[in-house]
Computed example of a mutant assay.
Amino acid sequence: MKCLECSDDTRKYKCPRCNNFCCSFECFKKHKDVDCTPAKTENEEKCQKTENVKKTILQFTTEDTVDPEKLEQLGNSEALKDLLRNPHLREFIRAVDSSENARKAMRYAMLEPLFIEFADECLKIVEPEETTNT
């Protein structure tokens, strides 16, 4: 990395806000006056994406639209993550998603016990009151 101010190859001073380097104290002082943004960690970026999902305004909702909070719960479900480690299940999901006839593909997938287990786990999160009554 080069110095933020003069592009020298020396790396002596690190900015605590953006984690970039300056070659000398003079360059560091110059950079200190600049409004630099801190480098985001991977965890901070993940949190930002979660916040964006929460702020999403759905323009065309239907009775089948899943609330963003429920989508977040699906994404955080350890049971679903465990099921999705199975490559056979992932292949079924890919096939349904890329099928030209989604209805036919879904009927076929619903014959597979592993896919049914996955669908049931999703429904436990998305529609918990309906799945507990059956």
Rank of each mutant, 00 (worst) to 15 (best):
V126I: 14
E130T: 07
E100I: 03
K40S: 12
Q73W: 09
R17Y: 07
I57T: 13
Y108C: 03
Q59C: 09
F92M: 08
L123E: 11
E26M: 06
S99F: 01
T37F: 10
F21W: 14
L80A: 02
M110N: 04
L58I: 15
Q48F: 11
A105V: 05
S7N: 08
K104A: 11
T50Q: 13
P128W: 03
H88G: 05
F25T: 07
D97F: 08
D97G: 15
E100W: 01
E78P: 03
L89T: 02
L89P: 04
A105N: 05
R107Y: 14
Q48I: 09
R11E: 09
V53C: 12
L84G: 01
A119V: 08
V96E: 00
E91T: 11
C27Y: 02
R107A: 10
P68D: 01
R17V: 13
L114I: 12
F60H: 06
P128G: 07
T41H: 05
N101P: 02
V34Q: 15
I116V: 15
T10C: 00
S7W: 02
E69P: 01
K55D: 11
P87S: 06
D8N: 09
T50L: 14
E45I: 06
R94M: 10
E127K: 14
S98C: 12
E44G: 01
D33E: 14
S77N: 05
P16R: 09
E78Q: 12
V34T: 15
Y13R: 08
H88R: 12
P16V: 14
L83Q: 04
N43D: 10
C27V: 04
Y13H: 14
F60L: 05
E63I: 12
K49A: 12
K46N: 04
C22A: 13
R17K: 14
N20K: 15
E130D: 07
D9E: 13
C15R: 00
D8I: 02
I93R: 03
E69V: 07
K104Q: 14
A102N: 05
E44R: 09
E112F: 07
N20R: 14
S77Q: 05
